[in-house]
Write a protein that binds this DNA or RNA. Structure first.
Lengths: 342, 342
DNA sequence: CCGGCTGGATGAAACGTTTTAGGCGCTATA
DNA sequence: TATAGCGCCTAAAACGTTTCATCCAGCCGG
């Protein structure tokens, strides 16, 4: 069966083309009898709207895109779920694109999305420099909301969790636990979250002093990268080896935990670990993981709301920047009798 | 800047509309000098192709959709990554839709995708009854590939892992370990994987005898559902309580592990656990989880390949059904000195 | 000098909607 | 009786591409 179009439906129902369109879009403006005839024709022919034509006419599509750094990262999957709720409620469709922390792929996705004239884009950009591609979208009138990236830019909305504060919370906690040699493990620093969390940790240390913060960078935010990072840390001579590590996210932390455990060392006695994101698996880890919790689904919901608002308000929209507060969840991986450590 | 269209570009470059189109689609058919003039006009005006118009003309889009049961499930995220590779290589775009194990949402997604005339659909359907929506897509000529669902249906391709075999492997292993009271935890049974894995386990038991298989159903395949399922199992009187549990997936298994640990019981001594999927977190769990491993990314890759093949081969395409073999990975959660248990 | 060929460009049709201006037959009002 | 208003419907234009049938100029062989 070839795809029937609106014209065939019209012929079949003995009405004009515009009437069919009215049945579809403003059913109450057409007489009940006619409407029924059209509906019958529709179901008889198995007619399905052609969205391309619709979009062409409308000038934009009804889909909203979210571009995440990593589809397999539980942080983002929860953000996606939050955004999904809101977007679907509004009768639109959410499509998920994966940049894989690769700015070339990000660019390709954005180009494609622009060609598709999507209704709007939620994005956690890969870098934190200027973003010509995003600006291009905005120029074209496509609303963009930055997710988990608090840019002060006035040209777009953003939702974020205060990563600097999160870094502070984690660091304060480790200092409270009496650690003096602490490592920050994460990367690449081109990812804003990685840099901000580190900045918070460094600031906390500046305020209180009396400890050492070593930075070890990873090439990505994955379990495997965490394992490799841990190898490096553990290879240090005992006097330099940190007694605690603050990881840029939970995947890294789980990697560290795996590596440490594999070598027969104990957590937190030999190495205390604090992660970030408090993903579902953090509590189920070999040693339950301390972590900085973020309101992930809410982040997604709020982002989607801002986007839809902007999309419908048009010119008179005022950009907003929403910042949520993170919260430290202390579990076994960093919790031990208070004493000074050397 | 309003979106410039092909006509303006043509005027700007002093050529006709068709020539611009040729520059875009068949650059070698237009004289170098003209081509350059057009390209200059394009970049000067910031012209971006309008994909809706393109699609309208072409009759179909260049996007491929994948509809998964749960975006937050690591199994699917890996399948998505595999499919992504192949689809992007082919210059198309993969969009991810989440049915959330809800057939109403699945239906809405499929309707929307049909309206969009997507190039093809990869899907793990919610139920395993007849699927009128899928048939509708196929009637319309949109290729559909079933993922992780080995339907013998001749009308579509499929890729799957032999879940019955996986269930056997798990069960055989537990029997080898000397367990006599075993539970199968998972649900809903309307999900084919849940039913098949159970069938495999039951078949293995039939073959060997000498043990009891209790089925406990959950409402979904999540960590939370696993915890609730474990509560029920642990509430049984000691004589009936199973000594081992085979879980329909790793999320369930992690939930069980959490609940068991929270009550101060030991794994595997008090309760052995075998999961399914071997997700990245399984090895990092409190007690490293035994699990049935599936070639997840490859599943995605193969599915995408079949889809693209069908999309381009058209009529003369022969449907294929690819089945991969799972593999049991034994870790601490089910590994213990062999002895008979009562 | 003519016919045919070729590389390069053109113009118009077509894809399937939505929307807008208007038409037609009624009824209610002045 | 004219007029306005209303309910219902129609016809046609427009959205931005791609493609296909032409066309034109130049060139070659005869």
């Amino acid at each position: 069966m070839a795809a029937a179009n609106i014209k065939e439906v019209a012929r079949h129902a003995g009405v004009s083309l515009g009437t069919v369109s009215n049945v579809l879009n403003r059913p109450d403006t057409v007489a009940p009898a006619t409407r029924q005839r059209v509906l019958d024709a529709i179901s008889e022919l198995g007619y399905v709207r052609n969205d391309s034509a619709r979009q062409l006419r409308a000038g934009h599509s009804r889909t909203v895109a979210i571009v995440v750094l990593d589809v397999a990262n539980p942080f983002f999957t929860d953000v996606v779920r939050g955004a999904e709720q809101v977007v679907e409620e509004a009768g639109a469709m959410l499509v998920v694109c994966n940049s894989g922390e690769d700015s070339a792929r990000e660019r390709r996705h954005l180009d494609l999305l622009e060609e598709q004239r999507v209704r709007g884009v939620l994005i956690t950009p890969v870098g934190h420099g200027p973003q010509p591609n995003l600006d291009k979208l905005i120029d074209r009138g496509i609303p963009v909301v930055l997710v988990d990236r608090g840019s002060g830019r006035a040209s777009r909305c953003s939702v974020a969790v205060d990563d600097v504060l999160g870094g502070r919370l984690a660091m304060d906690h480790l200092l409270d636990q009496g650690h003096h040699r602490i490592a920050y493990l994460g990367g690449p620093f081109s990812i804003a979250q990685v840099a901000d969390r580190h900045a918070g940790a460094a600031a906390a240390l500046d305020d209180r002093g009396g400890a050492d913060l070593r930075v070890a960078t990873t090439s990505s935010l994955t379990v495997a990268a965490g394992r490799r990072g841990a190898e490096d840390l553990l290879a240090l001579p005992a006097r330099q080896r940190p007694t605690a590590v603050f990881c840029a996210n939970d995947l890294i932390a789980l990697g560290v935990l795996q590596e440490v455990t594999a070598r027969g060392l104990r957590v937190p006695a030999d190495l205390a670990i604090v992660g970030y994101d408090d993903i579902e698996f953090a509590g189920a880890a070999a040693v339950p993981l301390s972590s900085v919790r973020q309101p992930r689904e809410q982040l997604g919901r709020t982002a989607a709301q801002l986007l839809l608002e902007e999309a419908s308000a048009g010119e008179k929209h005022r950009h907003r920047h929403v910042v949520f507060q993170p919260e430290l969840v202390v579990r076994r991986s960093s919790d031990q009798p208070r004493r000074t450590r050397r």
